[in-house]
């Protein structure tokens, strides 16, 4: 173990701001990309579900019109 205490770990020998800014932003950017991927996957799946439903509506539409 390189560190005497957790406070020494967070202080990073006075360079804490630089070190943690670098790693924190790396984490944030990776998390942001994962969130965007999950959301866009969900949105395309929803959209495809809607288009499939839309097709069913298209085929049922003439049926609705025929009685009138």
């Amino acid at each position: 173990m390189a560190w005497d205490s957790w406070s020494a770990f967070w202080a990073m020998g006075g360079y804490g701001l630089y070190v943690w800014a670098a790693y924190l932003l790396a984490l944030m950017v990776v998390v942001a990309e994962i969130v965007v991927l999950v959301l866009s996957r969900r949105s395309i799946l929803d959209h495809l579900g809607l288009t499939a439903r839309g097709r069913r509506k298209d085929t049922s539409a003439p049926d609705d019109e025929t009685p009138a």
Binding site: M1, A2, W3, F9, M12, G13, G14, Y15, G16, Y18, V19, A22, Y23, A26
Partner: peptide
């Protein structure tokens, strides 16, 4: 990798601890 960078890499008093940034900087 982070374990190596933050716990196995020794304290660097001459250069400064910011050398641990290299562990994400170069791979990125």
């Amino acid at each position: 990798g982070l374990y190596i960078g933050f716990f196995l890499l020794p304290r660097e008093l001459a250069q400064g601890e910011h050398y641990r940034i290299l562990l994400i900087h170069l791979p990125a």
